[in-house]
Amino acid sequence: MTEVTLTGLRVVLEVARAGSFSAAAENLGYTQSAVSRQVAASERATGGPLFERRARGVRPTAAGEVLVRHAGQVFERLAAAKQELAGIHDRLAGRLVLGGYPTAMAHLIPRAVARLLTAHPDVEVQLMESSTPSQLTALRRGRLEVAVLATGQGLPDYELDGLDLTEVRGGRGIGVAVAEAHPFAGRTEVSVHDLTDQRWIVGASTNGSPEFGAWPDLPDPKIAFSVRGWPARFGLVSAGLGIALVPGSVAAVIPRGVCWVPVRATGTSLRRTTWAVTTAQPSPPATAAVRALVDEARSWSTHPPT
């Protein structure tokens, strides 16, 4: 009898999360045929269909819901075991200064620091929230050991020569924050076309931090307000004064009165990459912090943050 594998469970979780085989394949870095094979193998092992094919993507069957629920628990326990074993075999100690831009500080960095301190409780972590140029200056001067920054469309070409870059790859993409009373709030996703006539709450920055405006492909977007901080943006959205472009990494910390809805889009107009940056010879705590950032972001592909 065929058994369910960890790879199969991971693929089933991602298909359920993404809502389609093609989106799951892109998020996991697999081919669509590989995703289909893993789902088919899991269906043989569990004795029946795990997904219903619909006009737009798929959704889990009753059996699929059961497997997804238990699979999430399996990966949580495996992650906990990995952290506990790491703590037994590698007792790091020392002081670490970790920096990040505001979006990363909203959720990714706190969760990664919690993961780091669970594995290495003797490490003392100090955080520095600042713009990317400020982080890079501090890193080169030895006042910062790990800088979290983003590169991509609409961002400056930062000077990164001589530094060590590790990609921090998550799986939630880009969405919009809308008020609970907004027509988008009850939907599982929206298209770029749906965004055409919306009023936008955009980010304002003068310090080089990555911020989010309206969807970049829209002709003449209607900007309602431009404010710097996420609390102000979410407050304006909650009041029904517009919608805001929000990365999936921030979706987990959206306040009450606001909903996050993914945007279905193709192309690379909003493709950005998050990096954990260190000097060429990072300290052991810095290396552990980079690993925690990567592991935390990767975990969102199989078990999105709540």
Rank of each mutant, 00 (worst) to 15 (best):
T2S: 15
T5H: 03
L6S: 08
V11P: 06
V15P: 00
V15T: 00
A23S: 15
E26W: 14
Y30L: 15
Y30T: 03
V35I: 03
Q38L: 08
V39Y: 01
A40K: 04
A41C: 02
E43W: 05
E43L: 03
T46P: 00
G47V: 05
R56L: 12
V58T: 06
V58A: 02
R59E: 15
V66N: 08
V68S: 08
G72W: 01
K82N: 14
I88E: 13
H89K: 08
L92R: 05
A93K: 11
G94D: 05
L98T: 00
G99P: 03
Y101N: 10
A104F: 07
M105H: 10
L108Q: 02
P110R: 04
A114Y: 08
A114R: 13
L117D: 04
T118K: 09
V123C: 10
Q126C: 14
M128N: 11
S131E: 13
R141K: 10
L144F: 04
E145H: 10
V148F: 06
T151A: 10
L155D: 02
P156R: 01
D157R: 11
D164R: 15
D164P: 00
E167V: 15
G170E: 15
G171R: 02
G173I: 14
G173T: 15
V176C: 04
P183R: 08
F184P: 00
R187D: 00
D197T: 13
P210A: 06
E211F: 09
G213C: 07
G213E: 06
W215F: 10
W215I: 08
P219D: 01
I223Y: 02
S238Y: 06
A239E: 06
A239H: 01
G240D: 09
S249G: 15
A252E: 10
V253E: 13
R256K: 10
G257V: 04
V258D: 00
W260R: 05
V261G: 09
V261S: 09
V263L: 02
A265R: 14
A276N: 04
V277A: 09
T278Q: 12
S283F: 08
P285D: 01
P285K: 07
T287Y: 06
V290L: 10
A292K: 09
A292Q: 05
E296A: 12
E296R: 12
S299K: 04
W300T: 07
T306V: 15
